[in-house]
Amino acid sequence: MKREEIEKRGEELIKEFSEAIADVKEEVETYYVSELVNVVRIDSEPVQKKDFKDKMLKIAPSVDEEGNIRVEIGKWVG
């Protein structure tokens, strides 16, 4: 299915969904259901994992001789 068709049919879907909840009178919004959210982490000293850089370089698209990651600017950028 083409993108335009998905968008067109999708908008109909959204319309149908919004009509089904249109008469809801509630004003309170629920983002997360957990009320005991631990909003801050405990600060501690950073730990450097020795193998982490190697693992990251392994999945990088391209790496030069000095271990720098080579990236290509996406076609949609700029």
């Binding site: 969904f17 919004s18 909840i21 809801v24 309170v28 919004e29 629920t30």
Partner: peptide, 15 residues
Amino acid sequence: GKYYHKAIKTRSVIK
């Protein structure tokens, strides 16, 4: 407001 905020208000109702 019309869609997302309405949905999270409905979420409160369901909860």
